[in-house]
Design a protein around this nucleic acid. Structure first.
Lengths: 139, 139
DNA sequence: TTAATTGCGCAACACCGTTGCAAAAATAAC
DNA sequence: GTTATTTTTGCAACGGTGTTGCGCAATTAA
């Protein structure tokens, strides 16, 4: 993805264009699996401070550029494919973690089915993680 | 739950009876929400070393006495209601985290519906977390 | 009762994620 | 284009999480 597109993404989410944000965005766009803070830090080869990357991720989260992906060994982040914003945030897709290669991916095609909760429960957000073997590792 | 029952649980999972294990088991039985390591440590008021509690949880996990509950702010543990063992481990229920009171609970009644994954994906384990408001906080 | 096994506490360590603050950079105003 | 304002950055520091190694203590088996 080119420079203009990244700047556009940032601007449309009301974030100033900075080197760190551009590069974090680039990393997330290139890898299409969900990445942890550590993954990103490693990818950027200490061009930026740890703290800056944390804050970058935090602002991306708040603005709806990325979303959290839960995993039994920590938190990861993936780009929002849907057109999310600060106000509207919608993620009903499934996350898949391959226990062989360790990658965690969003499966956009598979939608979390509606669930009937017992009376009194109010659902705001659903997060579904499936662990198993991905096609690439499946030989 | 009485002493004998706890010892029985430990023995049937091939774990030696120790004070720490009994008390961790007791805490998990009394609270019926999922607890983090920190919660348990606090509950036991430094009767035991942090490390011992970590190792206790680890052995409980391995033997199938408890299971992990994912959460966007960390890992929690809850007793397995099903009759889990080292070999057989089955959890297809839903976890609910209330964003108001912060408690995370297993909803045994709601079962995760079967999902059709794209070709090549092999599912081993499913983990579904719903965040929202629980009945108690729902006014 | 003794020997073998397993669990415990302590010290140490590597990560993770956050905060406060002063300097630097990005935008807005002129 | 220069200056003023606002936002972002890097640094230092901190608290929390989860792990490992090791010698000693407790538990079980002989």
């Amino acid at each position: 993805m080119n420079q203009a597109a990244k700047q556009n993404t940032l601007k449309s989410h009301k974030l100033r264009t900075t080197a760190c944000r551009e590069q974090v965005l680039e990393v997330l766009m290139n890898k299409n699996s969900a990445l942890s803070h550590g993954d990103i830090e490693q990818e950027l080869q200490s061009d930026f401070d740890r703290v800056t990357i944390y804050r970058t991720l935090k602002s991306f989260l708040e603005k709806g550029i990325i979303h959290k992906v839960l995993d039994d060994e920590g938190l990861r982040y993936a780009l929002c494919k849907d057109n999310c914003s600060e106000e509207h945030h919608r993620h009903d897709h499934v996350h898949f973690k391959c226990t062989s290669c360790g990658e965690t991916n969003c499966i956009q095609d598979v939608v979390v089915p509606p669930l009937a909760l017992p009376a009194g429960y109010e659902s705001h957000d659903v997060n579904l993680l499936i662990q198993g073997i991905c096609p690439a590792c499946h030989r």
